[in-house]
Design a protein around this nucleic acid. Structure first.
Lengths: 209, 209
DNA sequence: CTTATAGTTGACCAGTTGGTAAAATACTAA
DNA sequence: TTAGTATTTTACCAACTGGTCAACTATAAG
């Protein structure tokens, strides 16, 4: 019943585009509306506030990241190492193309919003926390399997290792954005593999600690 | 000649406090002035813009970070591993106390501003890039020495390793802020050491790659 | 003690912020 | 065809944004 439209989707996509390349507080409702070709009244017909738009935008980029990156990579029949390498290569390519068309390496939409808003908006912080947890689970499952297959040493702690990998990836992207240089991801990418070696093995190998 | 005052210092400290716990765009000139007990006219007597205040605030927190943390830790006669452990412990303690008094883990002032402003303000981005480079140099020197002493394997690449460590530390803090849990730094801290092992050694040890 | 200078004040500005409310319009389903 | 509903539009709001300016005041140095 009643009329239908794609205004809501347009607004969400505009939020992903604009907030993604600048920041939450640097983009106003007005600009969001202009970019989406929509009047402000329509905005508030679909969203109670800019914050709620952002929450839905986070849902969408997480869904897309799963569908376009995590699922294809981790459901493939490639080797464990190839999976990590593919994930890193896709991140590099994504950031590179962002820089080509905006002039800037825009970084990770989750990390960006997390650092900007975690202390100010508990709902957004919590949503990104959950996203990082789910992302970690993808990695954890691969690590568990790699240990079973003997690719990773038996003492590997999959939960700790996967969390460390997400931290390291976010840190890589943070440095890449700071240097405005996607090549930073190439330089740092190999470090991800080092986090796969369990702490105790590291200690034994070189008697550190 | 003329009158003296500590208004400028007060404004810089207010910026560190307010922008540090919220974000650049979430804090206005007015609030900065109120917090510093200063009228807006005085603000613009000392700073051409909020952006310029922020640039000076970055200088100060970097200076303090060096004086209070990097210099004492890395000029001590502790072992290499102890130095890293001390650095991590101090980060944990700092973030913990921030959470105790503000309710939030506020994260790294450099990382926060880098992600919020890198795509929007080239001057601020560049300043943080330089800071990360200098920070990396501190770590690099320690790593070079550790290789000499045989604590780290000879194939270690000090430049690559130190950069990876900064990335990992920033990623740890990012996750900690997202989870609003300083304990994340404890959980992830040990991973820093794994980045000290050179890629090739990792590959040899477990035939990965 | 004077004078030049550094610092302070308050009034002001145009533009923007996020958000509201009601009337007008277009469309869908019965 | 119609009735009801979803969407769109317009006009509006108070509060706040970063920033300006000229007048005023305190003080350090000669």
């Amino acid at each position: 019943m009643g009329r239908t439209s794609d205004t809501k989707e347009n607004l969400i996509n505009s939020a992903i585009e604009l907030i993604g390349t600048r920041s939450y507080n640097a983009v106003g409702v007005q600009e969001l509306c202009e970019h989406a070709g929509v009047k402000k009244g329509s905005f508030y017909h679909f969203f109670p506030s800019k914050r709620d738009l952002t929450l839905e935008a986070l849902d969408l980029i997480w869904k897309k990241f799963k569908e376009e990156t995590l699922d294809p990579v981790f459901n493939s029949d490639a080797s464990t190492l190839d999976k990590f390498e593919t994930l890193l290569r896709m991140s590099y390519e994504h950031q590179s193309s962002r820089k080509d068309c905006t002039g800037c390496m825009t970084g990770c939409g989750f990390g960006n919003l997390a650092l900007e808003l975690s202390t100010q908006d508990e709902g957004i912080r919590k949503k990104i926390e959950v996203i990082f947890c789910e992302w970690t689970k993808y990695l954890e499952m691969v690590i568990i399997q790699a240990v079973k297959e003997g690719v990773f040493p038996p003492k590997t702690d999959p939960a700790a290792t996967s969390l460390a990998m997400v931290a390291y990836i976010e840190g890589m992207i943070l440095l890449g954005k700071t240097f405005n240089d996607p090549y930073m991801l190439k330089r740092l990418g190999e470090g991800v593999l080092q986090l796969c070696i369990s702490r105790t093995d590291t200690a034994e190998a070189y008697s550190v600690g």
